[in-house]
């Protein structure tokens, strides 16, 4: 299929996502909204599979088979009471997927996903950073809600300073990569730092505040997808990622207001424990 046809179908799936999110905000249309979004995803996937730049289907088939089986099993086996942590876990997988795509783009020399130029490298760095934070941050959120980790705030003195320094180092590495000075070693260092940051940003937040954190991490995984879109110049990734990223921030704010929390508090991982008792998790 030619590129302009592919992009037209990408537009269709973006429209379906917009309609889906809109419908999900009203009780009467919510089921239809979810269905619309799922159809949008199907359109995007089918059209991508018909893209002429895809040369081999073996790896795709293997990945899709594993993913479908695990996804269906997880979604049907989970208890209804465990939904928030389920969303956290799924969201972490999404972040991990963006991370893997970015690393693949970094390593690819040519082909449809190869990152090139300043913008490509900047996008790789940002996708790696946000994707990895989403991956481990969501894992910690899952662990807290599933009571694999203690629900209370865990931390050490100066954890905020530690996070700040780590973030500065991560951004410096991204700057170096963007300037074309980084090799695979530097990318691995960035991945490690970002994976650690995901843990240290979420672990000081108490279990009662986790729904807000999950909403925020959901927004992050959208931004990671959009950044991945900039690596390979893919419009459906850019548009859908930006949609989820922006609407996720707004939803986070709405949930903060509903639960009497400050958005900046969640953003910088410093929610106080006081008054965390009287909330209900939805």
């Amino acid at each position: 299929m030619s590129l302009s046809f592919v992009n037209l179908f990408y537009l269709l799936s973006a429209v379906l996502f917009i309609g889906g999110i809109k419908s999900l905000t009203h009780p009467r249309t919510a089921v239809r909204g979810n269905l619309m979004a799922a159809v949008g995803m199907l359109v995007a996937v089918v059209v991508t599979l018909l893209d002429q730049s895809i040369l081999s289907y073996a790896w795709i088939l293997a990945g899709a088979l594993i993913g479908s089986v695990v996804g269906v099993l997880m979604a049907t086996r989970i208890q209804m009471t465990a939904m928030p942590q389920m969303v956290a876990l799924l969201n972490g997988f999404g972040g991990g997927a963006s991370l893997a795509v970015a690393v693949a783009s970094f390593l690819a020399i040519n082909g449809p996903v190869a990152a090139s130029g300043v913008i490509g490298m900047l996008a790789v760095g940002l996708t790696v950073l946000i994707g990895a934070i989403t991956l481990t941050g969501s894992a910690v959120a899952f662990g807290k809600l599933q009571e694999l980790l203690p629900g209370r705030a865990i931390g050490f003195k100066g954890i905020t300073l530690f996070n700040g320094v780590m973030m500065v180092v991560a951004l410096s590495i991204i700057a170096a990569l963007t300037a074309g000075q980084g090799g695979t070693g530097l990318l691995l260092l960035l991945i490690t730092i970002a994976l650690v940051l995901g843990v240290t940003l979420v672990i000081p937040i108490g279990g009662a505040d986790m729904p807000v954190v999950i909403a925020l991490l959901n927004s992050y995984s959208g931004i990671a997808a959009a950044a991945a879109g900039f690596i390979m110049g893919n419009t459906v990734l850019i548009v859908s990622g930006a949609l989820v990223g922006a609407s996720g921030i707004i939803l986070t704010r709405i949930m903060c207001v509903a639960m009497n929390r400050s958005l900046t508090g969640v953003l910088f991982g410093s929610i106080s424990e006081e008054g965390g008792e009287q909330m209900d998790a939805d």
């Binding site: 979004a37 799924l90 963006s98 020399i109 959208g222 893919n234």
Partner: peptide, 30 residues
């Protein structure tokens, strides 16, 4: 408020759009 979690979950599924990038990487036959 009852739709907060479903909306979060639904838009989370949409953020799985990164699947498109994943398909292109897996199928690039590099």
């Amino acid at each position: 408020a009852t739709l907060h979690t479903p909306l979060m979950s639904g838009s989370n599924a949409i953020s799985g759009i990164t699947l498109v990038g994943a398909l292109l990487a897996a199928g690039s036959g590099d």
